[in-house]
Write a protein that binds this DNA or RNA. Structure first.
Ligand code: ZN
Ligand code: ZN
Ligand code: ZN
Ligand code: ZN
Lengths: 158, 158
DNA sequence: ATCCTCGATGTTATAATATAACATTTATTA
DNA sequence: TAATAAATGTTATATTATAACATCGAGGAT
């Protein structure tokens, strides 16, 4: 429950989970108990969480799950755009706008460890121009920016 | 030696290795035998190579090295911008312009597995604008685009 | 040249991340 | 209800990476 910045995080979670529930209903996807439990664990904060930390969280609840349980749920959640993997951290975060689009961009604070999505369309446009120049057809764009968020930069100034 | 696209790959290797040698001399960095051997293995193709594949390649030469040998050399080579890690593949590629700049962008063909750098400055500019909007100070920008290169798209058309 | 220091390498062990393969259960649907 | 497919349980193992400590060796100080 270590959420530091997002004022109304409980709302932030429940709204997103509700959205996912709705999308799954529409698409005939099975948002099972395990999948929902794992999505909720991921959404406990805006910090990315590691697969084995998810595992130990659900093992507290339902002693005792094994790695495939977590990885299968993650596969489902990622395939359907509800969760993203942060490759540079081997960690997973909830998508803050499930199903709006598939390429999400991340800014990762190395001090507070929080991740924000910054899916600005100008970035997509610029990258696509460069890809055209290279006659490259893209499937997926992964952008991860590491640095310090505003709050953490302020603190370090004091 | 499975290089498919780069016409004059031997030149491509030797030029880059020479450049690295020069940079190390200038900066007083120790470009040791092991480090050079591993950089040469990485440069055998434009495909990213996995740490344990590097390990088995050098173990053929000098029976038998252990993982830390490889990971230490990779650390040195990455710290100094001679090699990049492709996070989405847990693999490593040589930098095609060592020491020009630190943020390199990659396009990765999922058919031939080759990786090209596409370090266009318009991408950097656009991303920086978005980061400014978010008052985020960046240390490192990681961009990995997965898709099909021109050659591979052509082939699949036929 | 000898000693000293520090960075590089050798070595063993283990941590952290992820998947294969097959058995069983549960949901859907014919 | 029976048949089918999808999800979950379970065991084992593959893959990726690092910790910890011993030893070596290049290059500077005396
Ligand atoms: Zn998203
Ligand atoms: Zn922060
Ligand atoms: Zn580069
Ligand atoms: Zn290709």
């Amino acid at each position: 429950m270590s959420n530091t910045r997002c004022d109304k995080h409980k709302k932030c979670i429940s709204t997103t989970i509700d959205q996912v529930e709705k999308i799954c209903a529409e698409k005939g996807l099975r948002f099972t108990k395990i999948r929902k439990a794992i999505l909720e664990i991921i959404w406990e904060s805006h910090q990315p969480i590691k697969a084995y930390d998810i595992l130990s969280r659900i093992s507290n609840i339902n002693y005792s799950e094994k790695p495939p349980t977590v990885y299968r749920a993650l596969d489902f959640l990622m395939e359907n755009g509800f969760v993203h993997k942060i490759n540079s951290l081997n960690s997973y975060v909830g998508c803050s706008h499930p199903n709006e689009h598939s390429d999400c961009y991340f800014i990762i604070c190395s001090i507070c460890n929080e991740v924000q999505e910054c899916c600005d369309s100008t970035i997509t446009k610029t990258i696509k121009k460069v890809l055209n120049k290279n006659t490259f057809k893209h499937n997926h764009i992964a952008l991860e920016v590491n640095g310090q968020c505003n709050d953490c930069s302020d603190v370090s100034k004091k």
